[in-house]
Design a binder for these strands. Structure first.
Lengths: 110, 110
DNA sequence: GTATCATATGATAATACCATCATGTGTCAA
DNA sequence: TTGACACATGATGGTATTATCATATGATAC
């Protein structure tokens, strides 16, 4: 006799929902977004990112760690520096699309 | 003598950054995302959304209010019911794109 | 080695956010 | 006009997130 049954479709949906939520949470922070926007212009090291975002070194390192753990950025060591870049083109596109969306909303005074 | 000067470019950037952060914050919640995913299938009223998301009426109403205030969804009254729908096609596309991104990541075991 | 540079990391206090409860408002049916 | 239905809203306690401080690690220059 079966007591519990798992609907694969729902399971997948819930897993996806979870992943989607986590993904958006990564983007839902001003410091992290600022860093990501800076990285849209290309790879940079921590000090460089600090300069371009006007954020403290500790904060930038912290948030880069968060972004790195979730594979949103990739890192490369060079001597005592660490260079970071967007992990893939998707991130760039996703952020770009949202920016376009907001710009369009702005135009229509919505 | 000028004490403060405002760089228009930076101002715009900060405003945009702010708007972008707010936008992603709207999406960075499991209940709200669940509702938005349900609405991708088309307009529905509160009770319908509750059924499809398995969320309480209060929670759904609460989050719909949040989404409505930010123009992510639009509403239409019909008798004692209120029907909600995605405000525009962009939201649909943006969520769809993120879903694709996650699916692709999944495929590559990243 | 020692100092310094570049970055990373643990702890913490303040704040923001969330889901729930209790209740309010408006609509329709009888 | 009373009751039930559909939804909205204010208050609240619990939890999560955030930025910062202090400090640690690891690489290079001297």
């Amino acid at each position: 006799m079966m007591v519990l049954s798992y609907d694969t479709a729902i399971m997948k949906t819930n897993t996806t929902l979870d992943a989607l939520t986590s993904f958006y949470k990564l983007l839902a922070n001003e410091s992290r977004l600022s860093i990501l926007l800076a990285l849209r212009d290309g790879e940079d090291n921590v000090a460089g990112i600090c300069g371009r975002t006007a954020l403290s070194q500790t904060l930038v390192s912290h948030q880069l760690a968060v972004l790195h753990r979730s594979d949103v950025v990739r890192s490369r060591k060079d001597g005592r520096r660490t260079f970071y870049a967007l992990a893939d083109k998707h991130i760039d596109i996703i952020v770009g699309f949202a920016l376009d969306h907001l710009a369009e909303k702005e135009l229509h005074h919505e």
